[in-house]
C-alpha cells in the first residue's frame, strides 16, 4: 500500500504539501521517526531555507542514516522538492556542508541578469522541457509549474536530467536516477499540473518490486 512520508526536518512549510497529498487521496504522514519512516513506501523531502541549515537539521534528527536505509539500501521512491532537490547534490555555492551526494551535481547561484525582466529569485510560473522517457511529466505543452529559487542544480551526467527550464539560462528543473527524483519547482503549488506530477511519482514502484513482477 502507498504510504507517503513527508520528511519533517524543520525546513519551511509542509502544510501545503500535506494538503495536496490529502487532495490526491493518499495516506501521508509528517515524520522524522525511524520506525515510521521504515514503514512508508514513498518519501518526499520538501524544503525552503538554506542548504547548510537543511543538512544540519537532517543530521541532528538522525535522518541521514534513516534516509540512506530507505532510499539507497531499500531503493524506495524518493522525491526532493526545491531545496529538497538541491540537497541531492554533493555541494552548493550556498553553503559549506556536503549534500547527500545521491546525484552527481553541484548547486549554483543564478548569475545577476542585466535584463530587469529576470530578477533573482526566479519567482514565477514556468514550463519544463521534460526528457521524453521521464515518468514524472505529462509532456504536454500546457504543463507549467511554480518556481521560487535563487540556486539551481548543475548535473554532471546528462542522463540524470529529467527536465530543463529557461530563465536567463537553461537550468535543470528536474532530475531522476533510478528511484531518486527531484524537482526544482513546487508541485504542491502548481494546480492540476503539480497534482498530476505527484500522482505519477506515487505510481512509481519500488525498484525491487518491479524486478519480482
Amino acid at each position: 500500500m502507498t504510504q507517503v512520508a513527508v520528511i519533517d526536518y524543520g525546513m519551511g512549510n509542509t502544510g501545503s504539501l500535506l494538503n495536496m497529498l490529502r487532495r490526491i487521496g493518499v495516506a501521508a504522514i509528517l515524520t522524522h521517526e525511524k520506525e515510521q519512516l521504515a514503514s512508508c513506501s514513498h518519501f518526499i523531502l520538501p524544503g525552503v531555507g538554506s542548504f547548510d541549515s537543511a543538512m544540519t537539521n537532517l543530521k541532528n534528527r538522525d535522518l541521514l542514516c534513516s534516509l540512506q536505509e530507505c532510499v539507497i539500501d531499500s531503493q524506495k521512491p524518493f522525491l526532493g522538492i526545491c531545496l529538497g532537490m538541491q540537497l541531492l547534490a554533493h555541494s552548493s555555492e550556498e553553503g559549506q556542508l556536503p549534500g547527500l551526494g545521491w546525484i552527481d551535481a553541484a548547486v549554483k547561484k543564478f548569475p545577476a541578469f542585466s535584463d530587469p525582466a529576470l530578477p533573482v529569485p526566479h519567482m514565477s510560473w514556468n514550463s519544463a522541457e521534460s526528457s521524453p522517457n521521464s515518468d514524472l511529466f505529462a509532456h504536454s505543452a500546457e504543463e507549467r509549474f511554480y518556481f521560487v529559487h535563487s540556486y539551481y542544480m548543475a548535473c554532471e551526467h546528462e542522463s540524470d536530467i529529467a527536465a530543463t527550464t529557461e530563465y536567463g539560462i537553461t537550468f535543470t528543473s528536474a532530475v531522476n536516477r533510478n528511484n531518486i527524483f527531484g524537482v526544482q519547482f513546487h508541485p504542491e503549488k502548481s494546480h492540476r499540473f503539480g497534482k498530476e506530477l505527484l500522482s505519477r511519482f506515487l505510481d512509481v514502484k519500488k525498484v525491487a518490486d518491479d524486478q519480482t513482477t
Partner: peptide, 27 residues
C-alpha cells in the same frame, strides 16, 4: 482549498505568528 501559492497579510507581529501561518499552508 488552494493549490497555488498563497500570501497572507494582516496582524502579523511575531515570528510565532509566521510559524503558525507557514504550518497552516501559507507560502
Amino acid at each position: 482549498e488552494c493549490f497555488m501559492p498563497i500570501t497572507y497579510g494582516g496582524g502579523i507581529t511575531s515570528l510565532e505568528h509566521a510559524d503558525e501561518l507557514f504550518a497552516a499552508g501559507v507560502d
